[in-house]
């Protein structure tokens, strides 16, 4: 009977340790008002303008991080070139992540990134550059940035 109790308890512990990872979009990548012909770069360090994603899950577990990045901002019939450089991403898995000085900096958002979740999960920052044409039609332009994370099992 005592063995059975221990077994059930272990089962609970094992089940509880397999917490699912979840992503929260804390902030979108916001270029704001742009003048035609004037490129605008949003630094990954800029709070409130850089994209910010938070991943929660099992402390210490390794996850793969993969962006599906757009190459243009669009509105009906027209687009703006959108550039993500190979240093536009940063990650911080400390309990109190610091966007101005992230723990893992200058990461390539076009590559699959492997990092471990911290106690409070992991925060991802993403900057980018938009290049409107001189005769860019005015209006609101948008694009989707998709982030996929998965446990690697390591």
């Amino acid at each position: 009977m005592r063995r059975l109790f221990i077994g059930v308890t272990l089962f609970f512990l094992i089940a509880a340790s397999s917490a699912a990872q979840t992503i929260t979009v804390n902030n979108n990548l916001v270029f704001g008002d742009m003048f035609p012909g004037v490129p605008n770069t949003i630094s990954k360090y800029t709070a409130g303008a850089a994209a910010e994603f938070h991943v929660s899950g099992t402390n210490g577990a390794e996850i793969s991080i993969q962006f599906t990045l757009p190459t243009k901002l669009t509105k009906i019939g027209v687009s703006i070139q959108l550039i993500f450089f190979d240093t536009d991403c940063a990650i911080d898995h400390r309990p109190n992540p610091d966007q101005s000085s992230p723990l893992f900096d200058n990461l390539d958002p076009w590559s699959t990134l492997l990092y471990r979740l911290g106690v409070q999960g992991l925060t991802i920052y993403l900057g980018g550059t938009a290049v409107p044409r001189i005769v860019q039609p005015p209006g609101a332009y948008t694009a989707d940035i998709t982030l996929t994370v998965a446990y690697t099992g390591a």
């Binding site: 979108n28 990548l29 703006i80 694009a143």
Partner: peptide
């Protein structure tokens, strides 16, 4: 998760 990039020209 899907975030977005936005700009107003």
């Amino acid at each position: 998760a899907t975030g977005s990039a936005t700009a107003t020209v």
